[in-house]
Simulated scan of single mutants.
Amino acid sequence: MQHERANKVFEMLKQKDYKVTPQRKEILTLFLKKDGEHLSAEEVYRVLQESHPEIGLATVYRTLDLFAELDVLQKLSFDDGKNRYELNDSEIHHHHHLICLNCGKVLEFGDDLLEALEEQITAKIDFKIIDHKVKFYGYCSGCY
């Protein structure tokens, strides 16, 4: 499955006249291995330095921005001063994020409890909702 997803991304890069560089391959592979995690550029850089010390932080930032622009990754802000990225899975409607105010851990909550609210808004206000983002702040089980 990871191989298929990677090939789709590489094919899309080629179609849009972007090179499939070794650095881009490594960054995508990392996100495929850590699917469901929310990684900052610095975390990506630290992990890659262990096996690929030639990859620079600027390359990581540029690649993450490119992947976000191409909807390969979703760029997220949890109000902690840094962006985090996760694989963009268009087959999952919504999930919400739970952010620990102590350790910074980000958990996902997959139930979409807002569908009924979206339907009510659409019916009452004649407003077509295409997306929503919800963040919950609190303390994880390791911190409270």
Score class of each variant (00 low, 15 high):
Val106Thr: 10
Lys8Ala: 14
Glu108Met: 14
Val72Asp: 01
Lys128Arg: 13
Ser90Pro: 04
His97Met: 10
Tyr45Phe: 15
His3Gly: 02
Lys25Met: 11
Leu39Glu: 05
Glu86Cys: 13
Ala6Trp: 05
Thr63Trp: 05
Leu57Arg: 05
Ala6Glu: 12
Leu39Val: 02
Asn88Trp: 09
Val9Trp: 03
Leu48Gly: 02
Ser51Tyr: 13
Phe109Gln: 08
Asp17Ser: 12
Leu66Ala: 04
Ala6Gly: 06
Gly81Asp: 09
Met1Asn: 04
Leu64Trp: 05
Lys19Arg: 14
Cys100Ile: 04
Asn102Leu: 10
Ser51His: 07
Tyr137Asn: 00
Pro22Asn: 06
Leu113Glu: 09
His38Trp: 09
Glu91Ser: 12
Tyr45Gly: 05
Leu13Trp: 03
Leu13Val: 04
Lys25His: 02
His38Leu: 15
Thr21Asn: 08
Cys103Gly: 00
Pro53Thr: 01
Gln49Ile: 09
His94Arg: 10
Phe127Trp: 11
Glu50Ala: 14
Asp126Ile: 11
Asp35Thr: 11
Val47Asn: 04
Leu13Met: 08
Asn83Met: 15
Met12Asp: 11
Val9Tyr: 00
Val20Glu: 10
Lys135Cys: 08
Glu118Cys: 09
Leu32Lys: 01
Met12Lys: 14
Gln2Lys: 07
Asn7Ala: 15
Gly104Phe: 10
Asp126Phe: 13
His94Leu: 06
Glu11Gly: 06
Tyr144Thr: 08
Met12Trp: 02
Ser141Leu: 08
Glu108Leu: 12
His38Ile: 07
Asp111Cys: 03
Leu48Phe: 07
Leu28Trp: 01
Leu114Thr: 11
Cys100Trp: 06
Arg5Gly: 03
Asp112Cys: 05
Gln2Val: 09
Ala58Cys: 05
Glu37Leu: 12
Leu66Tyr: 06
Asp80Gln: 14
Ile55Met: 05
Ile121Met: 06
Lys14Met: 11
Cys143Asn: 05
Arg62His: 14
Ile99Glu: 02
Asn102Ile: 15
Gln49His: 07
Cys140Asp: 05
Thr21Gln: 09
Leu64Gln: 01
Gln2Phe: 13
Glu43Trp: 09
Leu101Asn: 13
Ser90Phe: 13
Glu50Ile: 11
Glu37Val: 02
Ala58Asn: 09
Asp126Thr: 12
Ile130Cys: 07
Leu98Ala: 07
Asn7Val: 08
Gly56Ser: 11
Leu107Cys: 02
His3Trp: 10
Ala116Cys: 04
Glu50Arg: 13
Leu30Cys: 06
Asn7Phe: 11
Tyr45Lys: 00
Ala68Met: 05
Leu117Glu: 09
His97Ile: 06
Glu91Pro: 00
Thr63Arg: 03
Tyr144Phe: 15
Thr21Phe: 12
Leu117Gln: 08
Arg24Leu: 08
His95Phe: 15
Thr21His: 07
His94Ile: 04
Gln23Ala: 15
Phe78Ser: 01
Leu73Phe: 14
Val134Ile: 12
Asp71Leu: 11
Tyr45Cys: 01
Lys105Arg: 13
Ala41Glu: 10
Lys133Phe: 14
Leu117Ser: 11
Gln2Ala: 11
Lys128Pro: 06
